[in-house]
Computed example of a mutant assay.
Amino acid sequence: MKRLILIAALLFSVVPSLGALGQTESPSVDVVEVSGTIDRLTVDFIESTLAEVAASGSEVVVIQMDSWGSAGVPPERMDALIDAIDTSSVPVVVWVGPIPAEIRGDAQRILDVADYVFSSSGARFTGEDGSVIEVAPGALPDGVDELVPTLQQVFQTVDGMPGTDGDPIESLTLNAEGEITTLRIVFHTPSYWSQFLHLATTPHAAFFFLVVGLAVVTFEFYAIGPGIAAATGVLSMVLGFYGLAVLPFRWWALALILLGWVALTASHQRGGVFALSATGALLMTAGGLTLNGGGPAITTSWPLVVAAVLAVLFFYLLAMPVVGRSRFSTPTLGAEGMIGREGNALGDMQPDGEVEIDGATWQAGSHREAGIRAGDRVRVIEVDGVFLEVEPAQPSE
């Protein structure tokens, strides 16, 4: 019996060790892609990846960069990231590529503390004074060690170079056939939620998601009941406001965008008024083009801003009227059925205001001489799109 207990104890002590031995990972080279704006989520992602590769015994970590710098990151957080790269126990190589990659703003700080910096031909480096250097053979910016066209060639180039501890980096190995090949490559990517939010970290993208979200939510307001459009509009606005939370922007430009949205909605409410629609489109365009408050390092694509405004304008002119017509095509809410219905004024009409008909709130207008006050009974005499014309249901005393 004692012998059986001894054998069982021995098995329990050996089996976990064998399992751990089987789970030991082979040496690797790790790749971290950093593109666009460096926001707080990107900073957290780079720091956590550096800690992960240090624990896994990686030979080298390659940061593939195409960035115009940080936005919405407190200086102390950016300093902590730079320190983490500078003191990393795993050699850090920055590769600016592929074409048309570029480096602007304080993204340059990451290059300054990396162990090695490579760049693809055609990459662009923008200095603090706005000067631009395009990488070409014989024309390397300060701090760039070598011209390396592809990521695969980065692993070949760095092999044998001194690492952080002075030992040579071994990014290449021999396969079973005796051929030279790269070590196991591990690509690190942010979470899906981080990637989703990162979509809005440019001024034109934040503008696009904001105005599209406002338009779609307005569309859903005139449709019957919440649905897919409402969810799409809310998600789009989440992206838009996240972009504004990350990026430096001008408050007065945001006010212009919101005024443009109000003008377009008012135009639709009144059955389509050209002056209001044109004013709304111009206000949105002006707000979108001046929204960026981050200086030359963060640029706004004016074609994308104009395209977004045109899309929203046509949405209001074409899609929104269809909603109104479909709403009035139902037997209970048809135009003929609305005329003659009675309800209550929700406020003083001067001459426009809101009325409640059969439990639904409508925008309505009346003659100034009608003198309709809050609580007065009103009767529908005309329907213009989604706008009602009303009169007192009984003569005022």
Rank of each mutant, 00 (worst) to 15 (best):
S58G: 07
R104G: 03
G22T: 01
T299S: 13
F241D: 02
E356Y: 01
G365C: 04
T87I: 09
P226R: 00
L388T: 01
L172W: 07
R109V: 09
D79S: 13
P351Y: 05
R3Y: 09
T181M: 06
E170S: 11
M338G: 01
E170Q: 13
V113Y: 11
G122R: 06
L140K: 06
L41D: 14
S89T: 05
V60E: 00
S277L: 01
R250V: 02
A8K: 09
A370L: 06
G347C: 09
A114M: 02
V43K: 00
A335Q: 03
A200D: 01
R77Q: 10
L11D: 04
P162E: 04
L283A: 13
E146C: 03
F219R: 05
P168R: 11
V355G: 00
S131K: 15
G337S: 08
G105F: 01
W252R: 11
L258N: 07
V61A: 00
V92N: 00
S329C: 05
T157R: 14
A370M: 06
P190S: 14
E170K: 13
M78N: 08
G105P: 07
I169H: 00
R379L: 06
A55E: 10
E33Q: 15
G130T: 13
A266V: 09
P141V: 05
S277D: 07
E391I: 03
S277T: 10
G69H: 06
S171D: 05
G22Q: 03
I372R: 00
I99G: 12
A374S: 15
G160W: 03
P27V: 10
E179V: 11
T164H: 10
V262N: 00
W68K: 02
